[in-house]
Design a binder for these strands. Sequence first.
DNA 1: ACAATTTTGCAATTATGTTGCAAATATTAT
DNA 2: ATAATATTTGCAACATAATTGCAAAATTGT
Lengths: 139, 139
Amino acid sequence: MSEAIRELLKKNHMSVTDSRLQILDLFYHAPGALAHADIEKKASDKIDRVTIYRTLQTFEEKGIIHTIPSADNSVKYALCKDQCAEGHHHDNHVHFVCDNCSKTICLDDVLVPEVKLPGGFEPHQSNMVVNGLCNECRS
Amino acid sequence: MSEAIRELLKKNHMSVTDSRLQILDLFYHAPGALAHADIEKKASDKIDRVTIYRTLQTFEEKGIIHTIPSADNSVKYALCKDQCAEGHHHDNHVHFVCDNCSKTICLDDVLVPEVKLPGGFEPHQSNMVVNGLCNECRS
DNA sequence: ACAATTTTGCAATTATGTTGCAAATATTAT
DNA sequence: ATAATATTTGCAACATAATTGCAAAATTGT
Ligand SMILES: [Mn+2]
Ligand SMILES: [Mn+2]
Ligand SMILES: [Zn+2]
Ligand SMILES: [Zn+2]
C-alpha cells in the first residue's frame, strides 16, 4: 500500500521522504479534504509546520493535490485524480461542504457546468462549491 | 447619497456610526469586491482594524454584504442586492476574479446553475467563482 | 438633557504564514 | 558500500492576520 505512494512520488520526480509519505498517506485515508491544521494535528509522527506548508505547495505544483476554495479563509486540499500534471490541473468537479459535520468532499463525477459570461470576459478556470447536508448527516 | 446609506442602516436596525457609513460608502464606490485589507487602506479617516472585522461580520449577518470564496485565503466582500435579509442570503450569482488585475466582480445577471448531486446530498447554497481575464484587461 | 444601550479603540493574546540557514536525509556516482 | 552531490527538513526569527476583554466614546430612546 505504502508502495503505491512511493511510486506516486517517484513518478513525479520527487525525493521520497518520511514527511511526504506520511502526508500523502493521510490524504489517502482521509474521509474528505484536509486543511493545513488537520494535517498538523493528525500527523502521527510530528512534522514541522513549515514542512507541511512546503509539502502542500509542492504537491499542488506537481498536480498531486488541488485546493478547494472557501468563504471563511480556510482553504482545504484533496488528492487529484490521474490527469493532473505539473502546472496543469484538471479538477473541474464540484465540491461539497457539509454544514453539519463540515466535511469537504470531492464530487468527482459532478462536473462544474459552463456558464455564459457577459461580453469581454474570458474564463480560464471555474470553481463550484455547494454547501448543505452530506449523505451521512442527512440519514 | 450618504442619505441612502443612512437609510440602509436604519432599515436593518443598526446604529448609524461613522465607521459604518464610511465602510458602506467604500463598498458603494468600489469597482469590485473588497477585502479587509482594502478597507483598512482606503478608509480616509482611519478606522481600527478590529472595528473593520466587527463591521464586516455584522454587515454579513444582516444581509448587507456577502462573502466571495477564494482558493488562496483572501476572502472578499461585496454588497448584496435587494432580497438578502438577516440570516438569509440570496446571492446566487457567479463571481469573476481577474487573473491579471485581480479585481473581483459580482456578475449579478449570471446565476449559478443547478447541478445534480449524488443521492443523499442535500444542497442548501451554491457558490461559483470563475477566474480569467476581465473585460478591461482583455481589451 | 439624561439614562440605557451599543459601538469603538486599545492592549494583550493567539493564530497563521514566510524566510534564511545549518543540519539531516535522500539520491547519484564511484 | 562509500563518498560526493543535491534536496529536504527543522529551527529560529520575523511578519502578518485574527480574536478577546474591557473601559471610553458615541448613539439611541425618553
Ligand atoms: Mn476536488
Ligand atoms: Mn456577489
Ligand atoms: Zn456531514
Ligand atoms: Zn482585470
